[in-house]
Design a protein around this nucleic acid. Structure first.
Lengths: 214, 214
DNA sequence: ACCTGAACACCGTTCAAGT
DNA sequence: ACCTGAACACCGTTCAAGT
């Protein structure tokens, strides 16, 4: 019953098994004991590879965040950069909705997250935004993405969809509520993003005008 | 040891004691056992007033959400209506940051939440927005508020603040990071809200123009 | 109707013991 | 170095028993 010739566990195997549990049974469905069972091992063994449950969740988080695309700033187009970032960010969260509460809650101090924020900030500054504005824009965009992901995490119960269906019953049956919710969710996000970018574009134009005058 | 002449417990007393625990020690700090201790009662007694822990949290949530102001649409000014709603919504969440993950996560089907969403939707339609757009705008605004509340819940660890401080150390010391975070948070939210509203105003103007032409 | 005591089925984490 | 068995200190919830 001692240590096997070849290790039974690895952080990677643990993280992906854990993510599968979270994806199928929710954040509350993940327990160290259940994870151990799935991996055919005793609970205590897990603690040879991970300090505690929180560290395991952060590992999963890092894997998810790695999907975010921050390359849209390449040709100096800040608008394209933000849009690409926001959309891929949202897509990454949507792929694992049950992880969103943890991802949105946890300290953003994850290494990859920090590198990403830096790329966004750098891209905005390179495109001509003042540093302070770049910081605010980065934060604002994150609000949008995180908010969209959180709220659609509660999909199917959403107030707005409910109201829409209640008020305009002729537009769709109750049993299509889920599909409606997804649709409204997508469109709301795009509207928010585009309107926000339009508002920023106004400000950017004024910024350039002021700089020309000088 | 039987039932006392006058009840020891009430839902209200339970909810406010529970909220105090959550405010001071976080969502994880609240356990039914600890709540019972604070109230000078046995755990099992709590279940005479509440079906389970989740119902207790929803009760707290309802109390918090009651603070949200939805009266800004009164004089047909949709922009003012949205702004008032968004700001008071954010303020309510900020007053109890530890509750935000639950509030943002849970089904938006809370009675008061639904009534509020209805007021917003109605206000937008009355101001001239098509129903579908009103729904999208309501959802978008919620994204902003929830995202802002969620992300500032992780205050002090925020990527954007960190980047800002790292890059421009002359602008502030590390020990003032918390103050910086609050400031950036406030300004980011206002920027996001105003830019979003500006973007919507453009769309609204085009809408009116199209209507005139007809 | 409302509080109690005891129980059930869970948790995360630690640690000495094995190889 | 890595897995085990057993323990510790917690959970939420149920339920018969009391008044």
């Amino acid at each position: 019953m001692g240590r096997p010739k070849t290790p039974l566990l690895s952080l990677d195997r643990m993280a992906s098994a854990a993510l599968e549990i979270v994806d199928s049974d929710g954040l509350d469905g993940l327990s160290m004991r259940r994870l151990a069972t799935v991996l055919g091992v005793q609970v205590a063994s897990l603690y040879n590879h991970v300090k505690n449950k929180d560290e395991l969740l952060h590992e999963i988080g890092n894997q998810i965040m790695a999907q975010v695309d921050v390359t849209g700033f390449r040709d100096g187009d800040w608008r394209q950069g933000i849009a690409t970032w926001a959309r891929s960010y949202r897509a990454a969260l949507r792929a694992h909705p049950n992880m969103v509460p943890f991802l949105a809650t946890g300290p953003g101090r994850r290494e990859t997250a920090l590198a990403r924020a830096d790329a966004v900030h750098g891209g905005l500054v390179a495109a001509g935004w003042p540093p302070r504005q770049a910081t605010l824009i980065g934060a604002s965009t994150k609000y949008l993405v995180v908010g969209a992901a959180m709220t659609s995490f509660a999909r199917g119960f959403d107030d707005d969809v409910q109201i829409y269906v209640d008020r305009y019953p002729h537009l769709g049956q109750a049993h299509r509520l889920r599909a409606h919710a997804d649709e409204i969710d997508d469109e709301s996000f795009e509207l928010a993003l585009q309107a926000f970018l339009d508002g920023l574009a106004q400000r950017f134009a004024e910024l350039s005008k002021a700089a020309d005058k000088r």
